[in-house]
Amino acid sequence: MSPRIDIVVSGWAEAGRAWQAPAVRAAIGTLPQLYREVAAPPAGGGHVAWVMAGGDTWPDAVAAALQAGPAAVVVDQPTWATPDAIGQVERAAGTVPVILAGSRTHAPQVRDLAALVEPVKDQIEWVDALLVGGEASLFDALATLQAAGLAVVTPPRLTASPHGFVVEATAGGAARAGVHLTVLQGAGYTPQAVIKAFGSFGSLAATAGDPLVAYPGEVIRIDQSGYRAEPTDYQTPRRVALREVHAAVAGSLVSPHRLNSYVPVAALAGSAGRLGTEPARQSSDGRSSIQ
């Protein structure tokens, strides 16, 4: 049995995410053999620092967390990131792994979709994604697509809408795929993620509900012979991330979600301006087009 690791969660207040505290605590509490939540870092370090990164100053919060000598740092749902900020964090971290836990990067449905995307990634022609709830930021949404194996590779073109924004972009692969992404946020909305990918093989579709709730969703490949559903877990993205970080600290896994692997996404999100990180803000004349 791998050792139980202390975990320190910080940044509630700065991130404005106090309301998510029970969900994070519950996720940690479902893995009692892997983690022990402690209020302060142990004297000798070696713990996991879980930084709630909702605010503007998350790189400072990560730098502060690194002072205590953690074995790994998790950046939980940053609403923005730039290559510079990531570089600054990585330099401060040295050999300590810094892992991104976006609102859906670790969702089991996204992971299963990535497994279906991999063998057909060069055949995908069109991607249609709808993300409602979670973090309505461009960086978070692009991170979700990257985690699904559908990383955007061209500067996104944004159109603001009263409740979010719409993105046109292109995803990588031998055949470039058009990407249409809709990100909506409203406290009253039912959170959901629907990602569809189409190509000569047929289509793939993943649906997931509220990332705070462990509901299995549906991940399917549809082709001429019918459709097959992939089993997905009753796991929240945070619970998956917790397992993965534990394995990384125990040395049995190199996380595919190292923060620095998201530098290209941070660069693209930055190229679209701050709007991607602040979807609720409209221009003063109420017009909603952003080039």
Binding site: P162, H180, F198, G202, I222, Q224, Y227
Partner: peptide
Amino acid sequence: TVELLARMPGTWR
């Protein structure tokens, strides 16, 4: 705001 998306053929569902 209105989004309109359509693509066919290319899926079986």
